[in-house]
Design a protein around this nucleic acid. Sequence first.
DNA 1: TGCGGCTATTG
DNA 2: CACAATAGCCGCAG
Length: 585
Amino acid sequence: MWQGAGVDAASLLDRATPGPLVGLVVAPDGAVAIATGDGVAVIEPPNAFETVARADRETGPRWVIWSQSTASALVAEGVRLARAWDLVAVHRLLFGGWESDPGSLWARAQDLPTDRLPVDRAPNLFDQPDPAEDASALAVTEAGYLRAEWVGGAWAESSERIAEWARLALDLAQRQLTLIDRLPNPTRALATARAESAVELLCAELAVDGLPLDRTIATSIIEAAAGPRPRDEAHAVAIRAARDEAVLRHAPPGSHFDLRSPAQVKSLLRRVGIEVADTRAWRLEALREDSPLVDALLVWRKAERMATTYGYGWLDEHVGSDGRLRGAWSGADGAAGRMTATAGLHNLPAELRPAVVAVPGHVFVRADLGQIEPRVLAAVSGDPALIASTAADDMYVPVARDLGVDRATAKVAMLGAMYGQTTGRGAQALRGLQRSYPVAMEYLESSDRAAQVGTDLRTFGGRLVRMGVANANATSERVLRSHAAARGRFGRNAMVQGAAAELFKQWAVTVRARGELLDARVVLCLHDELLVHVPDANAEAAAAMVTECLQEVAHRWAPHQAAGGPSVRFTAEISTIGCWADAKG
DNA sequence: TGCGGCTATTG
DNA sequence: CACAATAGCCGCAG
């Protein structure tokens, strides 16, 4: 029931037992609104954050937040929530796509047409708002949409509005719950929704905590590859020119080629008698002996990349004076719902990994999932023979035996099947896969067929993978077919990659929760790898905890065990290391 | 200035 | 050189 702002926050929260949803809004000025089924309260600074932190510890509600930005505002004040319901994260699970504004979330959840979404009309000379009728006082329009002014920031203009914004968040979460209940497997989708929400909390923390990185080591690696730090712009130009000259001195005298232009590099290679379809490194590698220019060019490429993407600019922009590499994290980017990160956190060259060093008195516990995608395929398809093969530490060994081929061929074939390869060695072994694992292969092929004709897919965990409409413009039959085939490969892979991402994230947030008592912090999530930063004294306990979390999550996640059948086995290689580059073990 | 293509890096 | 991602630079259209 609506009681308006001013209800005592403590008494509201006292009545909330662990589990129920509690709307939570943080205004730019630090005021906090809390909404339960019993009413709404607004807490003004300076006690607002402390009140939330205490409620999180003592009552343990599942906080409904509009998006990761609420979590970020709280983390900035030192408040790390245990449980959340992130409306954007759940919206992406339910509907796919990348919408994140509250107006769209609200409309989609209420089944309102989004092409009639209210737009914020900036006031101008000819369209003065009528002060007599303050229509914007209400958050919801007559048609049931969220008013654009509110979405655009008017929600924060008064205590009453902040309170209303928290109440609306709670309303929307309850609406999302009913939508989840209509999905094919509501129980599993609910677990996904909760994990995806917790991932947003983790993302907010990853962005603030950063990855420990030794600036001195990083600088020396960059210096070795790209030269000294330029003193000024002229020096930078001189270094670039010198780098270019090392290649161009192998070119015909007087010629002018821009090494940064692939077309001109192709021309340059032609001048020395080398004809290539493109100038990618793997192609040029074979021609390294043919001309000193090719070798010089490949060396140049390495140095140029280090100088541009991971050079001093990168160091200055993303590595703080406290020795932390920080980027922005997304809990479910891309259609399949993997985590993504900026600042090179997900594609840091192996060359730079020696710079990722635990702070003194700490170590990293590094955990790598083994062969996650074929194991996930076994789980989501329920193929009994493939499930049986997951009992092995290296599941490609039994797969090779089943197929009557060597291990390398079995691995290429399995990856080819999951990626949609139709040519080469993998394609030949495909028939063997279809014979040995008909259920798994049909799972992939039916996903492929659906995606080809533009039918949306839903992952094992319930995420909608939107396929978009086929482009039927004036293109040739051949082009249309190749686009359809590409959609098919995308869809087939999204079902495996997406489910793997869901399992990984449940693992990551379980480690986050369980790590608190050990001062163990997740500092990097890398699709199938977790890096946990922990005090020396707790290293052993943390390593055991990470393993236990995986077994727990896998047990809950893989359904066949629950049904009394054989279970899919998941394994993780755990190492306790001082530096990310250190050998495993 | 925005966008597609090419290239390199990672899982 | 299949599936996914971020990121930088070039060349071209507007």
